[in-house]
C-alpha cells in the first residue's frame, strides 16, 4: 500500500513532466515545475516517515523551500525583468514531442523490466518512472530553443534524479544532497544571470543566436 502511494506520487511527477512538454507559456512551465517539486518533496517526506530517517526530513524540507519557492520565484523575476515573449520556440512541435515521449516511456519501461535492482527497494515502479522523467528533462533541453526552457528542462531532469535516489535507495547521504541543492541553486542563478546578459547584449532570447559568436 505504501509503495502504491509512492508510485502514485511518482506518476504525478511524470505527468507534470509531460505537461511541461505541452506548455508553450513560460509562466505555466515554471508553475508546473513548482508543483512538480512539491510532489517530489512529498515523496521524500513520506519515505522519511516510512523509514524514520532524519536526513530525508531535511532534504524534503530543502526541496520544498528551494525548488518550490526560491527557484520559481527567481525565474519569475527573470522573466518579468526581461519581458520575454510568452511563446516558447521549439525545434520539435508539441504533438511530435509527445510522440517522442511515448516512445521514451515505452523504451524505459521495457528496459527496466530486464534490470534487476538489488537491495531493498521501496517502490519498483519508481525506477522506470524516474528514468522517463530524466529522459524527458533531457529531451526538453535538446528540443527547446530558449535558454530559460532549457534550464527548466535541466531542473526537471534533476527532479527525476532526486526521485530515483530517494525512493529506490532510501536517499543519499545528507551531505551529498545538500551539495546537490547548492549546485542547483548556483546553476539556476548563473543561468538566469547569463540569460539576462544574453538578453541585454544581443536583444534576443534565442540560444540559436549563440552560435553567431563562434569565431
Amino acid at each position: 500500500m505504501f509503495s502504491d502511494f509512492i508510485e502514485l506520487i511518482g506518476a504525478f511527477v511524470l505527468v507534470l513532466a509531460i505537461l511541461q512538454i505541452t506548455s508553450d507559456r513560460l509562466y505555466f512551465s515554471i508553475k508546473v515545475y513548482a508543483i512538480q517539486s512539491f510532489f517530489v518533496s512529498i515523496s521524500i517526506l513520506s519515505i522519511g516517515i516510512y523509514s524514520s530517517s532524519f536526513d530525508l526530513y531535511v532534504s524534503s524540507f530543502l526541496t520544498l523551500v528551494i525548488k518550490t519557492f526560491i527557484i520559481p520565484y527567481a525565474l519569475f523575476k527573470t522573466i518579468d525583468e526581461m519581458k520575454i515573449k510568452r511563446e516558447i520556440k521549439a525545434f520539435v512541435n508539441i504533438t511530435n514531442s509527445l510522440l517522442v515521449i511515448s516512445a521514451i516511456i515505452i523504451f524505459t519501461f521495457l528496459l527496466t523490466r530486464y534490470i534487476n535492482i538489488g537491495g531493498s527497494v521501496i517502490a519498483k515502479e519508481i525506477f522506470p518512472i524516474s528514468l522517463s522523467i530524466i529522459f524527458i528533462g533531457a529531451f526538453i533541453m535538446v528540443s527547446r530553443q530558449k535558454p530559460i526552457t532549457q534550464l527548466i528542462g535541466f531542473l526537471t531532469l534533476e527532479n527525476g534524479i532526486m526521485l530515483v535516489a530517494t525512493s529506490v535507495t532510501y536517499g543519499m547521504p545528507l551531505i551529498v544532497e545538500i551539495g546537490i541543492f547548492f549546485d542547483v541553486i548556483v546553476g539556476a542563478t548563473m543561468a538566469s544571470l547569463i540569460i539576462h546578459h544574453i538578453n541585454h547584449d544581443i536583444d534576443d532570447m534565442d540560444a540559436t543566436s549563440l552560435s553567431d559568436f563562434k569565431e
Binding site: A11, L14, V15, I18, L19, T22, I94, T95, L98, L99, I101, S102, I105, I106
Partner: peptide, 12 residues
C-alpha cells in the same frame, strides 16, 4: 496536443 497528452497518460 491535448489529445496526444491524453493518449500519453493512457499509455503510462
Amino acid at each position: 496536443d491535448a489529445m496526444m497528452f491524453g493518449f500519453v497518460l493512457a499509455l503510462i
